[in-house]
């Protein structure tokens, strides 16, 4: 047999290649079954980046559906609560050019807001409770409702259904706990090649 193969190199090569193909095929087949990835990892990653307000401004019923839509090729600039930062992050992830926010879906809010129920006026209709995607409104039928401010994402969805318009979107109070240093102004603004030439005049006078 061996002798025979030696004399027929073409056949030998063929046998060797077929053997290799079978081995690798088996390995790949095994790996495909054993290391199968459940779900869509890109959707998970996109979902991580979205702000999870579940506000529906992107016209999808929640952040995950929008993540799925992006994974299927939808535009990445439909998320006003996330703003430009989210768009940039998604663009980074997908390695595409970062577009600006699509104004059709709303504008990026300057300040974060939370819903606040004027409790005196609440009639206890539970409509806002049903609308809240976060289960962040507490209350029962004919009982006063209130918002758990920590859980509220400021999605606005409870404002519309309120029959007595007793829900306000208040800006989140900023205090010491979320204070941070400002970033210094960009260097370019001040840029001079020879700084001493442009010293403030006062200093020159003092010297």
């Amino acid at each position: 047999m061996y002798e025979y193969l030696l004399t027929h190199p073409f056949l030998a090569a063929l046998i060797a290649l077929v053997a290799l193909a079978l081995v690798f095929g088996a390995v790949l087949g095994y790996a495909a079954v054993q290391f199968k990835v459940e779900g869509d990892p890109i959707v998970d990653q996109l979902d991580e980046l979205l702000p999870q307000t579940q506000c529906g401004q992107c016209s999808y019923p929640g952040c995950r559906p929008y993540a799925e839509a992006i994974a299927n090729g939808d535009a990445i600039n439909k998320c006003p609560p996330g703003g430009q930062a989210t768009i940039n992050a998604i663009a980074d992830l997908l390695d595409v050019e970062a577009p600006t926010l699509d104004e059709e879906h709303g504008e990026e809010a300057e300040v974060k807001t939370v819903a606040y129920i004027r409790e005196d006026e609440c009639i206890g209709c539970t409509k806002c409770i049903q609308a809240c995607p976060m289960d962040a409104i507490l209350g029962a039928a004919k009982q006063m409702h209130t918002v758990i401010a920590d859980e509220c994402t400021g999605c606005d969805l409870c404002v519309e259904p309120c029959p007595v318009d007793c829900i306000d979107m208040l800006p989140v109070a900023s205090g010491l706990s979320d204070w941070k240093w400002n970033k210094p102004p960009a260097v370019v603004e001040n840029f001079q090649l020879i700084a001493s030439d442009k010293q403030p005049e006062k200093d020159g006078a003092a010297a």
Partner: peptide, 12 residues
């Protein structure tokens, strides 16, 4: 917070 929101939303 967004992770918590996601969990709450999914739970809902």
């Amino acid at each position: 917070k967004s992770d918590r929101s996601r969990k709450r939303f999914e739970f809902r």
